[in-house]
Computed example of a mutant assay.
Amino acid sequence: MEHATTPVKSPVWVPILGLTIFAVASGYFMSVLPLTLASHQIPNVAAGWLASIYYFGLLAGAMLIEPVIKKVGHRIAFMGFVGILASSVAFMGLTSTLGLWMASRFVAGFAVAGIFVVIESWLLIGDSKEERAKNLGLYMTSLYGGTTVGQFGIGLIGASGALPFIATVTLLIVAMIPAMTAKQANPAQEEHVSLSFQQIMALSKPALIGCLVSGIVMGSIYGLLPLALKAATNNLEQVGSLMAATVLGGMSIQPVLSKLSYRMPKTLLLALMSLLGVFAMGLVHLDNSFGVQIVALALLGMSAFALYPIAITLACDGLESASIVSATQIMLFSYSVGSAFGPVVANYLMHTETGLTGFFFAVLLATAMYMLMVSLRTKPTALAQ
């Protein structure tokens, strides 16, 4: 069992660097996977099911990660989960059978659940809200920055044959190197307390709903947006640029979120971010030109990628460090429920007149209305809520 023996502050660069390289690989593979279906003789309709089975894996893993971290520590757990993810991608590159691909994506989702819980709890351990906010800002910037870079792989590496799988596995192996070389990198707090049922039920309801909606939107963005864009443009370079604009928008909003979360109630901030996405989808409905799409998808990225960090910090406000791993599992579970079912509904609506933009519009508008009502009921002194 691997435990820190002294309360030395964990070097933040280890999880951040590993996360960044992982994000490049994951961002590229998540976006390129729907585009590889044709070259493997798999029907495009399978894109929604592959996205959903991945998030069902995320859902299954979300509640089973804490014992692993308790047993081996954050560093070893991170390397193990990245290794499992790399193996699942390599296996997909060796077969073109849809059933085996779905099994591999389920395993991949399980592994990614582990990666997220490990990194989030690694960075959120600490009793200072300011430290948590700073580290989470680094986390989201690294995650979305790496994911943005990964989008350009669609044009540079391509979307057919074995090359996407080889490139992804190579990057995932590189992502393990920081944790492999920094053997004393575990966070000082290695004792973890599971939340009781009563404590889980006492967690912020807006935080749980924020994570749920984030999963619905993000699962649909990664699982179906590349296909929707390809159908509209039939140009892989434009698809890569539009996906990059979406993720870059999400990355650019992160420093602003860190400042705004201390200046207004988090429920109001969740409402404003949701309304930003509603506005973005309205733009696409009015004008579907490439330039407007770039702007609209960047705004959608700001909206969608903002929900999870705001919600998870809302959930962790007031919690002790020992409870952070358990709390992040619960939030990831909520996110995973949305991610698992969102693409199924979105896939159906994508073939209707409203399309994917109508789906995003409806989900984000409903979220904004709920968060506004909660914010109006919140006492002015409870700004952290």
Rank of each mutant, 00 (worst) to 15 (best):
M102I: 06
Q41E: 14
L64T: 07
P226Q: 04
A4L: 13
G137E: 04
S52G: 10
L365N: 02
A322N: 14
T6C: 11
M30T: 07
L260H: 08
Y28M: 03
F110L: 10
F152I: 07
H3I: 12
A368Q: 06
I221H: 02
T246I: 09
T233S: 03
G146A: 02
S289F: 11
R75P: 03
S289Y: 11
N135P: 13
A231H: 05
Q41R: 11
E130G: 09
P7N: 15
Y55A: 10
Q254N: 07
L143V: 11
F305K: 05
N44W: 03
G57H: 08
K259S: 13
S326T: 12
A382S: 13
A232C: 05
A175G: 10
G57F: 06
G18K: 07
G48H: 03
L275M: 15
N347R: 01
L171C: 00
T328M: 07
H285L: 01
G18V: 05
I173A: 00
A133L: 07
H192Y: 15
A111T: 12
A346F: 04
V295Q: 05
V149I: 15
G291E: 14
F361W: 02
E131A: 15
L19W: 04
L242N: 00
P67W: 06
A38D: 11
A228D: 03
M251W: 11
S160I: 01
T381Y: 09
S274C: 06
L319K: 08
L227I: 01
K205D: 11
I157G: 02
F81L: 12
V82Y: 05
A111H: 12
L268A: 14
I157C: 01
G249P: 11
T378A: 12
I65E: 10
I125T: 15
L356A: 00
H3T: 13
K183W: 09
G338L: 01
W49E: 09
S303G: 10
D127C: 13
F152D: 03
V344H: 06
A207C: 07
L19H: 09
G277M: 04
I115S: 02
S194W: 13
A167Q: 04
T168N: 00
G153E: 01
S142C: 14
P343Y: 07
F116P: 09
T148W: 06
L94M: 12
L272E: 14
I42Y: 02
D127E: 15
L171S: 00
G80R: 10
L270K: 04
F152L: 08
M92A: 01
P164L: 01
